[in-house]
Amino acid sequence: MDKRLKIIQSFIISATAAAVFIPLITIITELNPAVKDFLKSAFTHHWIGKGVLALGIFLVGAPLVSLIRTKAETGRTSFWLKILTATAILGSLAILGFYLYEVFLSI
């Protein structure tokens, strides 16, 4: 049971890291065209670059997180699930808020 929970917990934590990365890279590429151009040249399109990197963080991050010695139990797994959910919601709102600001408020 502990092993199963540890796997789940590792993926939830790596998904949280990816959910932090997505709004950050979105806003950074809009503010800094050089980063957008770099993603374009490396992945043919900036959106593909963001997707590949986010998936990479999720898939590669989980085995790395599992190496950290932590106790896996349902309370902790539930806590990380709530953190992931909150991060995804806040990240989505940050993206929407950023584009609304860019179009309607920034001079």
């Binding site: 998904a15 997505i22 979105t26 963001k50 989505s92 993206i95």
Partner: peptide, 10 residues
């Protein structure tokens, strides 16, 4: 397009 990036991971 950017919120869509969350969905496969979630």
């Amino acid at each position: 397009e950017h919120i869509f990036l969350f969905l496969p991971i979630l």
